[in-house]
Amino acid sequence: MPAISWSDYQVFLAIARTGQLAAGARALGVDPTTAGRRLRRLEAALGARLFEQSRTGQELTEAGETLLSAVEAMASAAGRIGEDALGGDGLHGTLRISASEGFGSWFLAAHLPRFQAAHPRLAIDLVANSGFLSPSRREADVAIMLSRPRTGPLVAHKLADYTLRLYGSRDYLEAHGTPQRPAELASAHALVGYVPDLLYAPELRYLDEIHAGLKANIRSPSITAQMQLVIAGAALGVLPCFMAEGDPRLVQVLPECRITRTFWCVTHQDIRKSPRVALFRQWLDETVRDMEEVLQP
């Protein structure tokens, strides 16, 4: 049997207690689509159908009734462990998270309030800018980085892959035409990109992967500034899909040009088991797994 996440059991428990998928999702602070996906994942892992649809909502099957007793015992035990470990007051103190500007400002900022609401006594510092704080030097508790560190007293695991594509505004494409081949970018189009000597990670070199020798005409160390330049019609630019896909002002250009990068979750080995770090890492893993279609559309 594949490993089953505790969050999937929590979804099952919430639906069983409320009798409805939507009500269970609200109780957990997630959307019904996410709750339904987690329930289907749990049923697939167990090889059993846990609910039957009725006129009023979800009714437990025989397998669901059996599982409910076990999961309620697990939830009760987990609650006692949390109270013993944290003095009954929940997580407290400060959790400092370092992330790239795009992931921090556009992805984490959208989902982090849910984690904070579950731990209201925990202060959270989200440092999202062009660069990373160092877990090795204890500048951050958790860093979301673009490569796996090779040295230092660190623990790292792969968080998720994400996709980048070339985008242009509708106004720009109407004025300058839509390129059909990567080679056209060098001769007939302006490009937005990073300032070469201000690159804080080599993984941010994108243009050569689209066509050798491409150079940016307008440059900024800020991915947010680059995106605004593309929206304003100044040039074409490579942008993370999780930032650009939801903006109706932007259009994919040369859709065959797909760039993949990876986020790594990194922390100092001495604090990896602290409750605030361990629970945040678990929550983050579950969140990016649920949002895989946003990171890699």
Rank of each mutant, 00 (worst) to 15 (best):
V192T: 13
G47N: 06
A109W: 09
L279A: 13
W106F: 11
A22T: 09
G152K: 12
A186N: 08
L295M: 05
L229V: 07
F51E: 07
V277Y: 04
R80L: 00
A27K: 02
A117R: 13
A3P: 07
Q269C: 09
D8K: 12
G193K: 04
S54P: 01
R137Y: 05
G36S: 12
Y200H: 15
R114V: 09
I124D: 04
K273H: 15
S98Y: 09
R181P: 08
R17E: 13
S220H: 03
P240E: 11
V192H: 09
E72N: 11
H211E: 14
A110M: 02
D247F: 05
A77C: 04
A70R: 14
P135G: 08
Q269P: 05
A118G: 14
P2L: 12
L279K: 12
R121A: 15
I259W: 08
Y167F: 14
V71T: 05
A232K: 09
A3V: 04
G19K: 00
A22P: 03
G47K: 07
L166M: 07
V251K: 06
A75R: 12
P135H: 11
L204N: 01
C241I: 11
P179R: 01
A190R: 15
C265V: 15
D247S: 08
D197W: 09
T267M: 15
A117F: 02
T163M: 08
L173N: 02
C241L: 10
R249E: 09
W6L: 14
A123V: 08
F132W: 13
E293N: 09
L191K: 06
I231M: 10
F103S: 01
E286P: 05
D171H: 11
A183W: 08
G19I: 00
A118W: 04
A216D: 01
V155I: 14
A14H: 00
M227V: 06
L122P: 04
V253A: 07
A244E: 04
P32A: 01
Q226K: 12
R148G: 06
V30I: 14
L199R: 15
E43S: 07
T267Y: 05
D8A: 13
Q20Y: 02
A183K: 11
A225S: 11
A123F: 06
G104T: 03
A99S: 13
W264V: 07
L50W: 00
M243W: 06
A48I: 04
L279G: 03
G93Q: 07
R289E: 13
T33V: 01
R276P: 06
H157D: 15
L21F: 00
H268Q: 00
I124G: 03
D8E: 14
A27C: 07
Q58E: 11
V192I: 14
R40T: 12
L204D: 01
L254H: 08
A188L: 13
T61G: 11
S69M: 08
D125L: 11
S187Y: 09
V11Y: 05
A35T: 01
R38D: 02
L112Y: 07
R80H: 03
A244V: 03
G82S: 12
A109R: 14
A73I: 11
L67N: 00
Y9C: 03
A110G: 04
V277Q: 02
R114D: 10
E101V: 03
L164V: 05
Y200D: 15
S100L: 10
C241F: 10
E139L: 04
S7P: 02
E59S: 05
D285A: 13
Y194T: 10
I4E: 03
G82A: 15
L86F: 02
P240F: 05
